[in-house]
Design a protein around this nucleic acid. Structure first.
Length: 384
DNA sequence: TGGCTCTTGAAGTCGGGCGC
DNA sequence: GCGCCCGACTTCAAGAGCCA
């Protein structure tokens, strides 16, 4: 059988199908829009091509469609699709395919995947969350307490410089955030970064990236690091090697890309000038929320209790020296008991958790962008 | 609460171009 | 002529938001 120098349509389609299967194997589930960005990034009809290719693969039983809780669909490898990949020499393809794959935190997974695709399109080498979980990535052995910490995504530039990427989209307790401080110390503490030599790659971890679509999470991370710097738990120098990235993704998992990027060092310097930021904020939002000090004890307690689902009940009871009670009992605490709680303690508790959150300062993702724009417009020579 | 509109993702159809 | 890629356009369904 004679082969032409240029691939004919059939061969191109076959190559496209194989490429789609390979990406599915690496990401563990992708939508057609994600596949279009990966396989046909420069083509205006890439989305349509991805749909057509997925349709053909589904018809051939090589992929399975999975409905997402937020609407839309994602596609995973079927057993047959996985088998085909193994025949093509992809040893990482699971024998059972990805039919048992669960999408318990689709928002987190989608931000990981979309951010990974962005980095891939920027020319960086990537290891996806799915690959890291399956130990198919150059993951450093960093344990904090009894837990081994693993990143959500790993990227590498110039075949040397590795980045540990954390997607921070949900609330994390202070103790879990502190674990990330330890990771940063281990990773970025060494002068040349953390060296790794694995069968997947060799290089040096030289920076850490925190990605979130919710600004309050980035603020929580920076605050935790700020405290660690103040207590000299880690060196301030690493603040330059930590990046905060605000991204935009809708509830229906529609990706709008990166909203703003800033180093932790820049962000903390900005936070130091918090009153200036607040002044700009007040100009933008003429009706700021009331000051915590002006709220009644009853309202303060309601705010404390509203943090329940995020903090543990025990933590709250310990903080206010209350007998451990059920969440419902704490929510319906009688007024006379609320009056006995130290008001300053409630203020401190709320300041600790709220001052840096959306609720108190009216921050939102758009504001981060405003904030970054505002600071980028400042004349560096004029700042003290 | 129901109807309407808009947005978004998935999929169908058509025609031009290309290689065999 | 056939089979495929590719681009453009269209249709359909589901969800969200708005309004009477």
């Amino acid at each position: 059988m004679a082969h032409s120098k240029r691939p004919d349509g059939y061969e191109t389609a076959q190559a496209n199908r194989h490429q789609v299967l390979r990406w599915l194997n690496r990401f563990g589930g992708l939508t057609t829009s994600q596949l279009s960005r990966l396989v046909w990034p420069d083509m205006s009809s890439g989305q349509r091509m991805a749909q057509r290719t997925i349709h053909a693969l589904k018809k051939g039983g090589l992929v399975i469609r999975r409905q997402l809780p937020n609407g839309g669909s994602t596609y995973v490898l079927s057993e047959r699709g996985s088998r085909l990949l193994r025949e093509l020499g992809v040893t990482t393809a699971s024998a059972r395919g990805q039919r048992d794959l669960k999408f318990e935190k689709p928002m987190h997974r989608f931000i990981c995947n979309e951010f990974a695709i962005d980095r891939h399109l920027e020319g960086l080498r990537i290891w996806t969350e799915f690959e890291i979980q399956r130990q198919q990535a150059p993951t450093p052995r960093i344990t904090v307490g009894r837990h081994r910490k693993i990143p959500d995504l790993i990227t590498q530039a110039n075949d040397v410089y590795l980045s540990w990427v954390e997607v921070e989209n949900a609330y994390k307790s202070q103790s879990r955030l502190l674990e990330l401080v330890t990771v940063a110390d281990r990773l970025l503490g060494p002068r040349d970064g953390f060296e790794i030599r694995s069968k997947h790659a060799e290089g040096f971890f030289t920076n850490m990236v925190f990605v979130a679509s919710n600004l309050s999470r980035l603020i929580a991370v920076s605050r935790c690091f700020s405290v660690a710097f103040e207590k000299h738990l880690i060196s301030w120098d690493i603040a330059r090697d930590i990046e905060l990235v605000a991204v935009s993704m809708t509830e229906r998992l529609r990706w709008s890309g990166t909203v703003g990027t800033v180093t932790l060092e820049t962000f903390l310097i900005a936070v130091e000038q918090y009153t200036d930021i607040q002044k700009v904020l007040l100009d933008e939002f003429p009706e700021p929320p009331p000051r915590l000090e002006d709220l009644s004890s009853w309202t303060l307690w309601k705010h404390c209790v509203s943090l329940f689902e995020e903090d543990t009940v025990e933590e709250l009871c310990n903080e206010f020296e209350l007998d451990t009670a059920s969440p419902d009992a704490l929510k319906s605490l009688p007024d006379n008991k609320i009056d006995c709680i130290d008001r300053n303690q409630m203020l401190a508790y709320l300041r600790d958790r709220l001052v840096w959150r959306d609720a108190d300062v009216g921050l939102n993702t758009e504001f981060l962008q405003q904030c970054m724009n505002w600071y980028s417009q400042q004349d560096p020579d004029s700042s003290s």
